[in-house]
Design a protein around this nucleic acid. Structure first.
Length: 497
RNA sequence: GCCGCCUUAGCUCAGUUGGUUAGAGCGCUGGCUUGUGGAGCCAGAGGUCCUUGGUUCGAGACCAAGAGGCGGUACCA
């Protein structure tokens, strides 16, 4: 055995680290289309593209454990040769904050940029969750007013449309962090750093409304909750009145913005922060109404929280609605594909002064998966026409022919591998090609080209039993003059279903 | 982090009470067929039975630990 081991050449196992995916041709094309659609929306609204590096200094990303000099778990980090910690970015927002802080004086404010790229998270992957995935972001830095938030919300809705969705198939659901702050303030949770942890727990609890239901959330708002596996999650420790107030708040919204605003004004009582939040929603509503964004595209929804702690004002999620209606005839949610909101403290970490910011972000592959499920994806690129290399002496001729198809915008390739015609036809079949081009020296001399429709040929094959018949019948092919062969290919392609 | 399930060929899996050379289907490669993709027939390649340790005359099978995968839950900037 030891001898065997010695003689065996080292062969690495072909494998991927978990949570890292190879992305297929079809997936990449769909992703590129989606990103392109979003970019065109951002671009026409005057946003500028930006590309930041995958690595940032760990302290710039802001994730250090308080009692540790190493970057937080959850990020991929390594020490550079000068011993400084560098981390792979875990989102596109923190690098943007760094970029703005670094170039603050040179940028015209508000600085509005869009960006798409891979982000990395060093955590356990789950179904539909990876350790590398593509995010697509647009942000507006340096504008404090609700107008900037309204713009991001409108952009989110426009991106939904650009992705191919019809109005009614999606909804942007808007809330405001300040409202919940107001409710909690009235329930004895101070609106200060002391209450931060408790507020975060309340947010996490509300975020689980759709999964755990009101009873589960009630437990998480109170003492805590034990799940089916026996694991215990500590609660936010609100008192009974506080739990009631929070649950009441999360169900206060209707599908009419004006109504919801009126309800909220009543709920906020005397809380200055709460009323401030309502005021912002009124300003956003005014803009949305002026531009014609109705309740079907943008709704106010008090159950939206976004789990993240760094939001400071308006927050929103882009949700896809299925075709399926519930009993009352309303569309049923299938989930959030993106979201955003105001984060006024992220850039100011780098500088003394306040730098307000607001943005929108969506996960590209998650959005695609959802679109796929809704059958809202465009068809992808057609397979190429395959030009068989019958005769190596004619190779130059084959490439010239491919060029003629390219000039007409037809995807085509010459078989550059080794093997006889059988192999080449197998290759064409495997590539899902519809048309194979056959030209040997006979056709060449006669000024002809033979075209074979592989789709039609496959249909014909079903009726053929014997191999000899299959070989000799040569179904679904025609020989055309070299002079007009390109239009013959075009006609054959048009014939496809 | 916690809980559960799983790990034998590229894929899906079988493998008897612990017994000699570990199998099947599909897929792959080649041939029948150097001018034709299907079907068919023939041949072939491909294995650290996840790893390590233990029990045993003997382990793919039994035991222990570890690793990896899947699912749930928690966290998620």
């Amino acid at each position: 055995m030891a001898k065997n081991k010695k003689n065996k050449p080292f062969r690495p196992k072909a494998r991927r680290p978990r949570g890292f995916e190879d992305r297929s041709a079809e997936m990449l094309r769909a992703e590129a289309r989606l990103i392109e659609a979003a970019f065109s929306v951002y671009d026409i609204h005057g946003f500028e593209p930006l590309q930041t590096p995958a690595f940032e200094f760990a302290d710039a990303l802001g994730k250090f454990l308080p009692d540790d000099d190493r970057p937080n778990t959850g990020v991929f980090a390594l020490q550079d040769d000068d011993e400084q910690w560098m981390s792979l970015r875990y989102d596109l927002t923190a690098p943007l904050a760094r970029f703005v802080a670094e170039n603050y004086d040179a940028l015209a404010k508000p600085y509005r940029r869009y960006q798409a790229g891979s982000v990395f998270r060093n955590e356990k992957p789950g179904p539909g969750r990876f350790r590398e995935f593509t995010q697509c972001d647009a942000d507006s830095v340096g504008a404090a007013g609700a107008a900037a938030d309204a713009e991001m919300i409108m952009l989110a809705a426009e991106v939904m449309r650009a992705a191919g969705l019809k109005d009614g198939q999606y909804a942007i659901r808007v809330n405001n962090r300040k409202l919940l702050d107001g409710i909690l303030e009235s329930s004895g949770v101070p609106n200060t750093a002391e209450g931060a942890e408790q507020r975060l727990q309340v947010l996490r609890a509300i975020d689980k409304l759709d999964r755990l239901g009101a009873a589960g959330v009630e437990a998480l708002l109170g003492e805590g909750r034990e799940d089916d596996s026996g694991d215990y999650t500590d609660g936010a420790k609100l008192n009974a009145a506080g739990i009631k107030a929070v649950l009441g708040f999360t169900t206060a919204s209707t599908d009419n913005r004006a109504d919801t605003i009126r309800t909220l004004e009543g709920l906020m009582g005397t809380s200055e922060r709460g009323l401030d939040g309502v005021k912002e929603l009124v300003q956003i509503d005014t803009i949305l109404n002026a531009v014609g964004f109705g309740n079907d595209r943008v709704a106010y929804d008090t159950s939206i929280v976004r789990g993240l702690g760094y939001y400071t004002g308006p927050v929103f999620e882009a949700e896809l609605l299925t075709e399926i209606k519930d009993r009352k005839g309303r569309p049923v949610r299938i989930g959030s594909v993106g979201g955003g909101g105001r984060y006024d403290d992220l850039v100011s970490r780098f500088r003394g002064q306040a730098v307000p910011a607001t943005g929108f972000s969506f996960g590209v592959s998650r959005f695609l998966t959802a679109l796929e499920r809704m059958d809202a994806l465009e068809s992808s690129v057609k397979p190429p026409v395959v030009i068989c290399a019958f005769d190596k002496a004619l190779m130059g001729e084959y490439f010239k022919m491919a060029g003629e198809l390219h000039a007409e915008g037809i995807r085509a390739e010459v078989f550059v591998g080794a093997g006889n015609v059988t192999k080449q036809m197998k290759y064409a079949d495997r590539r899902n090609a519809q048309v194979a081009v056959l030209m040997g020296s006979d056709e060449m001399a006669a000024g002809e080209v033979t075209l074979k429709d592989l789709y039609e040929g496959a249909k014909a094959a079903a009726a053929i039993e014997s191999n000899e018949e299959w070989k000799s019948s040569r179904p679904a092919q025609e020989t055309v003059s070299r002079a007009n062969w390109v239009s013959a290919v075009r006609a054959m392609l048009a014939n496809a279903s």
